[in-house]
Simulated assay, not measured.
Amino acid sequence: MNSRKEQLAAFNRLLDIMDDLREKCPWDKKQTLESLRHLTIEETYELADAILDNDLQEIKKELGDVLLHIVFYAKIGSEQKAFDIADVANSISDKLIHRHPHIYSDVVADTEEEVKRNWEQLKLKEGNTSVLEGVPKSLPAVVKASRIQEKVKGVGFDWEHPEQVWEKVQEELTELNEEVKAGNKEETEKEFGDVLFSMINYARFIGVNPENALEKTNKKFINRFQFLEQEAKKEGKELADMSLTEMDVYWEKSKEFYK
């Protein structure tokens, strides 16, 4: 691994390159905070994919892309005389010190739960009017539900046992089934949302990340379906002309390779 001196030199090199690109490259010169936004979101998802795949080399590459965006935003901020990379680093450092009084002060927090509880209380003291204020509105719904539940848990609003949450899941499923049978579309949508929310809550209680779990299932389904397509093609068959029973033969076979 590189020494701290080498790490700082590498970061300084990136800052110098950013200065050059912003001055000389036609594409880089045109970028704004707004134009970079969607690209940053894309890069973040690519990093998330690499993490799920546990591909360390790809993670390194994607982290570089995300770091470039951070440096880029800071460069634009400095041009607008609003902030620079030092302000960005000092801002997060100050926040970390302030929100870790169990490390940098005399507050005691021996467990992860105590740390989270202190964190939420500190944010309220900083001026937040709600513990849910920090949940981004544009988060995907599954991630947002997880963050909401984690936030309210930080102030003690939570179930006590996984069994209670599972009972709630069963209750919501029953209510959903009743609305489906009644043919009430609007209420069915509401109850379906309640089922998903309660399942995400249950996932938290049993130590499962629902976003990761669903994405792994997505990838597994894609792999199995593409196997089905490839095997059918080898035999000169088109899926549209095959019966479900015929396709199911390949599907079952795919499970040997993609579990």
Rank of each mutant, 00 (worst) to 15 (best):
residue 3 S to V: 05
residue 36 L to C: 03
residue 123 K to F: 07
residue 31 Q to K: 13
residue 112 E to S: 09
residue 19 D to S: 09
residue 114 E to M: 07
residue 61 K to W: 01
residue 140 P to W: 04
residue 21 L to R: 02
residue 157 F to Y: 14
residue 76 I to T: 00
residue 208 V to H: 07
residue 195 V to T: 02
residue 133 E to C: 07
residue 128 N to K: 15
residue 169 V to D: 01
residue 70 I to M: 13
residue 47 L to P: 07
residue 30 K to Y: 01
residue 51 I to Y: 04
residue 188 T to I: 05
residue 147 R to K: 15
residue 47 L to W: 08
residue 165 V to E: 00
residue 203 A to W: 09
residue 16 D to N: 14
residue 239 L to S: 00
residue 56 L to V: 10
residue 102 H to P: 00
residue 195 V to M: 06
residue 155 V to N: 04
residue 101 P to L: 08
residue 104 Y to I: 08
residue 195 V to N: 02
residue 55 D to R: 04
residue 91 S to I: 07
residue 182 A to R: 04
residue 134 G to K: 14
residue 186 E to H: 13
residue 69 H to N: 15
residue 90 N to E: 15
residue 127 G to M: 00
residue 186 E to Y: 12
residue 58 E to N: 12
residue 19 D to R: 14
residue 245 T to E: 15
residue 201 N to K: 03
residue 251 W to P: 00
residue 206 I to H: 06
residue 12 N to I: 10
residue 116 K to N: 08
residue 45 Y to W: 14
residue 257 F to S: 09
residue 85 I to T: 04
residue 224 R to H: 00
residue 136 P to C: 11
residue 115 V to A: 01
residue 258 Y to D: 00
residue 87 D to Q: 10
residue 12 N to V: 08
residue 162 P to Y: 01
residue 64 G to F: 07
residue 61 K to H: 12
residue 84 D to R: 08
residue 61 K to S: 14
residue 152 V to S: 03
residue 175 E to L: 03
residue 58 E to A: 11
residue 10 A to Q: 13
residue 182 A to S: 13
residue 22 R to T: 00
residue 157 F to N: 12
residue 173 L to C: 09
residue 257 F to E: 05
residue 192 F to E: 01
residue 166 W to P: 09
residue 255 K to M: 09
residue 110 D to K: 15
residue 109 A to F: 09
residue 206 I to Q: 01
residue 141 A to F: 05
residue 210 P to A: 00
residue 238 E to W: 02
residue 25 C to F: 01
residue 4 R to K: 15
residue 63 L to G: 00
residue 229 E to C: 10
residue 8 L to V: 04
residue 190 K to R: 11
residue 61 K to Q: 11
residue 48 A to H: 06
residue 147 R to D: 06
residue 239 L to Y: 05
residue 249 V to F: 08
residue 131 V to H: 10
residue 169 V to P: 04
residue 196 L to D: 01
residue 174 T to F: 13
residue 66 V to N: 01
residue 213 A to C: 10
residue 160 E to K: 14
residue 143 V to N: 01
residue 160 E to M: 06
residue 46 E to T: 01
residue 131 V to S: 05
residue 98 H to V: 09
residue 34 E to I: 04
residue 82 A to Y: 11
residue 68 L to Q: 05
residue 259 K to Y: 02
residue 137 K to P: 07
residue 203 A to K: 01
residue 110 D to T: 14
residue 45 Y to V: 12
residue 159 W to P: 08
residue 55 D to K: 07
residue 251 W to S: 07
residue 127 G to P: 05
residue 247 M to D: 02
residue 170 Q to Y: 10
residue 51 I to F: 02
residue 201 N to I: 08
residue 235 E to L: 12
residue 93 S to P: 05
residue 145 A to Y: 03
residue 18 M to S: 04
residue 35 S to L: 02
residue 130 S to C: 11
residue 197 F to T: 07
residue 43 E to P: 00
residue 41 I to F: 10
residue 164 Q to K: 03
residue 218 N to Q: 06
residue 63 L to C: 12
residue 62 E to P: 00
residue 220 K to G: 03
residue 121 Q to F: 02
residue 222 I to M: 10
residue 159 W to D: 04
